[in-house]
Design a protein around this nucleic acid. Structure first.
Lengths: 160, 160
DNA sequence: TCAACTCGGATAGAAAGTATCCGAGATCAT
DNA sequence: ATGATCTCGGATACTTTCTATCCGAGTTGA
């Protein structure tokens, strides 16, 4: 089980966007984080499709958060990049083989699928409990309150 | 994020093995579940390497559980097949770019990595709380107490 | 001692993730 | 109003992982 690499970039990008009301170009986000510009753009598209960010075209275009950072959860971002399909998908092998269970007895998911779904739900809950604003605050605390100010300063001076 | 297909087969196979003290051949497990024999064998190797099952060679060989089913958790099986690496791996992009954080300030994982680790831990905890014996009992209940007896009967008559 | 059966690792093919490019659309200066 | 420039968006190659399979090494029982 591996999570797409773009999840990390998307989360950092959202934290950065939370520090700016003005649109931020994909190129600048990539430069700030030291990551491939073209590939990050693809992931930003996914965030745009999920309506987490809003894309503005044109010379002063770029990306902005559509909602306050406190109302955007990590889960939304992860699902926007990685998809909403659960990690475990039951192929109903109980309905196959010599001891196959009749289909009419399989309305309820199989016990294994239920346990996996419960685990996934626990994962979802943990991610839904943390917002982009929470992340920004935690990163700020880790740096003794300088990190986000530095980001804001860098963003303000980036439009040359 | 997608979980390997073999996880489902491994879990069902462990439940089946919990119903037999005698070794069960990989061919029989595949036949019972209606799945590719050769590919299941590869996953059983992983279970063997993790010492969840014991492989016996020879004419009356096959696989058996090494421990009581009540002491084998879903988490162990999932990790044996899928590996123990966490789904999210931080690439430390905070140490890159124009606002790079000095390495000496990065002893603690970044806030995003911490939140992801907490979510993964919740997932682990949910899986560790369910044993193979629990699964067997739940499957039995779903079938009004006939499923496991049917499995035992089929296993007893399978060595022709 | 021999024969038959088992598991185990090494080997091809398919799918998904990774990385990139160029075109459609919009904005600002002229 | 017009044109040039800059933006995002989807379509296109490449790499890695997962999927599926085969044949050899080792063991058991007759």
């Amino acid at each position: 089980m591996k999570l797409s690499n773009g999840v990390e970039w998307a989360l950092h990008s959202c934290v950065t966007l939370s520090q700016s009301r003005a649109p931020v170009r994909a190129t600048r986000l990539a430069e700030l984080h030291g990551i491939p510009q073209a590939y990050l753009a693809k992931h930003l598209q996914a965030l745009s499709r999920a309506e987490i960010v809003h894309a503005t075209a044109g010379q002063v275009g770029g990306y902005t958060l559509t909602r306050p950072a406190a109302s955007v959860t990590m889960l939304e971002v992860v699902q926007a990049i990685d998809g909403t399909e659960p990690a475990y998908r039951c192929t109903e092998i109980r309905q196959r083989g010599p001891l196959a269970v009749p289909a009419e007895q399989c309305e309820r998911p199989c016990a294994i699928a239920r346990a996996m779904a419960a685990a996934q739900e626990a994962w979802y809950r943990a991610l839904a409990a943390v917002s982009i604003a929470d992340l920004a605050a935690a990163i700020d605390t880790d740096s003794d309150g300088t990190a986000m100010a530095d980001v804001r300063r860098w963003l303000a001076g980036s439009r040359h």
